[in-house]
Design a protein around this nucleic acid. Structure first.
Length: 868
RNA sequence: GGGCGGUUAGCUCAGUUGGCUAGAGCGUCUGGUUUACACCCAGAAGGUCAUUGGUUCGACCCCAAUACCGCCCACCA
């Protein structure tokens, strides 16, 4: 039974996946004699849906994984999910908000139960969606950041850092999100430009400018530039400033960071609510007064404004300043507002007691010395222990690490790993469980990235020295989006080098963002998003995978649109149908060799040609994959299948010298090369055309085992050129494509045998009835005339059909073009520098080309004479 | 303010050690039921490779500057 005419992806994919998984093909065998290939899957958040970013990640990683598995490497792709502290908690808070509830209404325990339920549900969804993408990851090793073992790892690392005094608790200025009621790390703060007002008002003897007048109620200093003559007299003084009945006391300090040209040149310093001011305060020993609390309300310090929101206080205070006649002017001002990366609420910098990781303390044993986390994180890239692809991200990474401040790791949200610290009065103990009665645990949880920073090794059983950890760590490649380089990649490097003394991975491959056809970011609000699952349902996973991989280069964004996916669906169908054709011919002759792949029984020149081209393709694809050039590898095999195997070899096979064994042998190799890219359709076809073993665990082709014959390539190329010429001549002369023509070809001596051997292909593919092939011969009247490079002449006798004026002008045009080419090439060849400096093979090629063009020109000119 | 990326056919993009007369898919046009595939086949039209200068025997590719588009970091109150 022939297979159906069109490939219906949805009918096969789930079954095939199930077969792979049931057969255990995703689980590697540990072999101490072999070097493993390992990827830790970046864990999707346990919050819901697979999006195109995940799809890209899965497609690329699955290509790497399948390629290495076929190469015979013990290959581990470890999947999992991330509890995603703030993100997940926010999601659930939104859900209960619909019932008019807050997490505080439910209480910690009850709320966490709800989040847990939600996350478990999402995990199921995500797991199935990862399977839909065809990801061949080892589900037997699936992990979740809140698993028992991973929590153990978190506690162990915290304890060790605490003992190394790398972790400290202290009052520091932090980024506070009033809506999340939590701190955020510096890189978890986004920025948004807004139209704000810059207020200038009288402030004792100064006029100061600020966009946040309400914070001035918490000022403890005024800073001026040391060179600023206007204010020199005040420096060092302490003075009281009155706003009506409200008084503040400020110290006047000089600091060169103050720009005398901005505003009035005098800066009101609010150490508790600005990072920059906080640093000034540290430097000049300035008092810190908190005027905004953790709910975003004014504190008692603000006097009559106490209890008001920041916004209210601003409006009211501005009004009061105006009433008092203190307001000097208001200017429109572009302010770069800090907002929360999870809920877009405006961030309040404030002072809070939090846990920090010291990134500058040299406590880490690394390459025979003691170094800071920061220093090691820089060293691993500088020394090449870790390679970032593309390497332009090195600079971005260095810049971030170099400017890294101590990392605030405590969060006031509930969903996450609890900080393993207990208090009893003034006493403090680090312990996973209560050290005894009356001890109270720190209410805070860890920054999500603290636990995901351990992902490559916590998932392998660390802190136990498990067989998995010893064998599979460090991992080979970390593949992820460039938008996550700071959040995650940098954190993994910091945490892993500290905890294990190893790098987490040897290479980092960064992919770009998926954008729509106009190049804008896809988002729910814009409605321009493409749901990968819809596309899978419509076009099949294989097509979706190709559309995300081909045309994408590392670190660069890709645009995705439905027509593109449809195009790759067509490719998948093309493959299906070429296999269908093989099955039709092989069914009769039962000639499929299931036993000895890579046996290439060549008979004809065309056979030698396709095998040689297969050799080149296997080589190109393999080398591209080794260099992480996935798009290029995909394009190469795409073109080989469609343009050469189908359009030429298959067509040539519809003839007397059909060679079914070879057709199948080549197809088997094509299926292998394509399998990492489009695993489903290739596995399906392998059932019919393969060896009986599953394709997923077949051996990757070795091009050195495939014969290569340059002469066969040259011979077929010249035949193809002749066929192209005849076909285009027909179109130009508007000859009915169905009509058979006669042809006379003068080949010269070199190609006489080639043309004679291949005459049946010429006849068939160029639709030639009577074909005369000779080395030379007389000019033919009333015929279309074409000359191939090298002087091979083709006559198509068309008595009464040829328009001689047209033929004349066509010949003239071609003569002109050929002359131009000869002149350009001649110029190149008569340039001494070229002969001297260009590689010999380039010079040789040019010499050869000019000779061929000259031969062609002679023929064309003779023809012109004849036409006149 | 600092840094990065992009600019190649109507659209989306390839073009990795600088060397054939710059390519593909989609779209357009002309034709086409040939031993698979109309999700197909054959052919055609369409490009001063953003601009200017430099290096080189030779530049889409390297360097410098400019313009426009996009992104990241910093945060001058």
């Amino acid at each position: 039974m022939p297979i159906p005419k069109a490939y219906e992806a949805s009918e096969h994919e789930d079954t095939i996946y199930q077969q792979w998984e049931d057969a255990g093909h995703f689980t590697p065998t540990i072999d101490p004699n072999k070097k493993p290939f390992v990827i830790s899957m970046p864990p999707p958040n346990a919050t819901g849906q697979l999006h195109l970013g995940h799809a890209t990640m899965l497609a690329l990683e699955d290509i790497m994984i399948r390629y290495h598995r076929m190469k015979g490497d013990p290959t581990l792709w470890l999947p999992g999910t991330d509890h995603a502290g703030i993100a997940t908690q926010n999601k659930v808070e939104q859900i209960i908000a619909n019932q008019g509830l807050t997490r505080h209404d439910l209480g910690r325990e009850e709320f966490l139960k709800k989040v847990h339920e939600f996350a478990e549900n999402s995990k199921d969804t995500i797991r199935n969606q990862i399977r839909k993408m065809g990801a061949s990851c080892d589900w037997t090793r699936e992990r979740y950041t809140l698993d028992e073992g991973l929590s153990q790892a978190v506690q162990t690392v915290f304890t060790r850092m605490f003992e190394d005094q790398l972790i400290y608790r202290g009052d520091r200025i932090v980024n506070w999100c009033p809506r999340c009621s939590s701190t955020l790390a510096d890189d978890e703060v986004d920025h948004k430009e807004i139209d704000a007002t810059l207020y200038y008002f009288t402030y004792g003897p100064f006029i100061i400018a600020t966009s946040r007048p309400e914070t001035k109620l918490g000022d403890t200093a005024v800073a001026v530039n040391p060179t600023d003559k206007r204010y020199k007299q005040y420096v060092g003084q302490t003075m009281d400033i009155n706003f009506g009945d409200h008084q503040i006391t400020v110290k006047v300090v000089a600091d060169k960071s103050v720009d005398p040209k901005f505003g009035s040149g005098a800066l009101g310093v609010t150490p508790a609510h600005s990072h920059a001011d906080y640093e000034l305060a540290q430097k000049h020993d300035i008092k810190v007064v908190q005027v905004i609390n953790e709910e975003g309300l004014m504190t008692d310090v603000a006097g009559k404004y106490a209890g008001q929101t920041v916004q209210e206080a601003r409006t009211n205070f501005v009004q009061e300043l105006k009433d008092l006649g203190l307001m000097v002017k208001e200017e429109p001002y572009k302010q770069n507002l800090s907002i929360c990366y999870r809920c877009s609420t405006s961030i309040e910098p404030l002072i809070s007691k939090q846990w920090f990781v010291d990134v500058n303390k040299p406590v880490l044993d690394w390459k025979g010395g003691k170094h800071s986390l920061k220093a090691v994180a820089l060293d691993v890239i500088r020394s090449g222990d870790i390679e970032i692809i593309p390497d332009r991200f090195n600079k971005i990474y260095f810049n971030w690490i170099e400017n890294l401040r101590d990392w605030c790791i405590s969060r006031q949200i509930w969903w996450g790993h609890r900080i393993p610290v207990w208090y009893k009065g003034e006493e403090l103990k680090v312990s996973a469980t209560a050290p005894g009665p009356d001890w109270k645990q720190d209410p805070d949880t860890f920054d999500t990235w603290y636990s995901s920073g351990l992902w490559t090794f916590s998932t392998l059983g660390w802190p136990e020295q498990t067989e998995d950890f010893k064998y599979f760590h460090p991992t080979s490649v970390l593949e992820t989006g460039y938008d996550i380089i700071f959040f995650w990649v940098a954190r993994m490097i910091l945490m892993t080098t500290y905890a294990t003394g190893e790098v987490p991975f040897k290479q980092v491959y960064l992919h770009g963002l998926v954008l729509d056809k106009q190049g804008t970011k896809m988002s729910k609000s814009k409605g321009n998003g493409i749901d990968p699952l819809d596309m899978i349902a419509k076009y099949g996973t294989d097509a979706v995978r190709l559309s995300l991989v081909i045309g994408a280069t590392p670190g660069n964004n890709v645009r995705l649109y439905e027509e593109k996916i449809a195009g790759y669906r067509n490719f998948v169908n093309k493959l299906w149908n070429s296999a269908r054709f093989l099955l039709m011919i092989c069914q009769e002759c039962e000639m499929i060799d299931h036993e000895t792949p890579n046996n290439f029984p060549v008979k004809s020149i065309a056979d030698k040609w396709i095998v040689s081209r297969l050799h080149e393709t296997v080589k190109d694809v393999t080398q591209a994959l080794e260099k992480h050039l996935y798009s290029e590898a995909g394009v190469k095999i795409y073109e080989f299948l469609w343009d050469e195997y189908c359009d030429w070899y298959l067509e040539m096979s519809k003839d007397k010298d059909q060679n079914p064994q070879l057709l199948v042998a080549v197809m088997q190799n094509i299926l292998k090369l394509l399998h990492p890219f489009i695993p489903f359709v290739t596995e399906k076809l392998w059932e019919k055309l393969g060896t009986g073993k599953a394709l997923i665990i077949e051996e990757w082709p070795d091009y050195t085992q495939i014969p290569h014959d340059q002469d066969a390539i040259n011979q077929i190329s010249i035949i193809q050129a002749a066929i192209y010429k005849i076909r285009s001549t027909r179109t130009e002369l508007k000859i009915d494509p169905v009509r058979k023509l006669n042809a006379i070809i003068y080949t010269g001596d070199q190609y006489l045998n080639t043309f004679k051997d291949q005459s049946h292909h010429l006849q068939k593919l160029a639709r030639i009835e009577d074909l005369t092939i000779q080395a030379t011969g007389p000019k033919v009247d009333e015929a279309a005339h074409q000359v191939l490079s090298g002087g091979i002449e083709i006559y198509l006798p068309l008595r009464g059909v040829i328009d001689f004026d047209k033929e004349l002008s066509r010949t003239n045009t071609e003569i002109k073009e050929t002359k131009q080419y000869i002149m350009a090439t001649h110029k190149k060849l008569s340039n001494e520098g070229f002969i001297k400096n260009a590689p010999p093979e380039v010079v040789e090629r040019e010499t050869d080309q000019i000779a061929k063009a000259k031969a062609k020109l002679v023929q064309l000119e003779e023809r012109l004479e004849q036409l006149k």
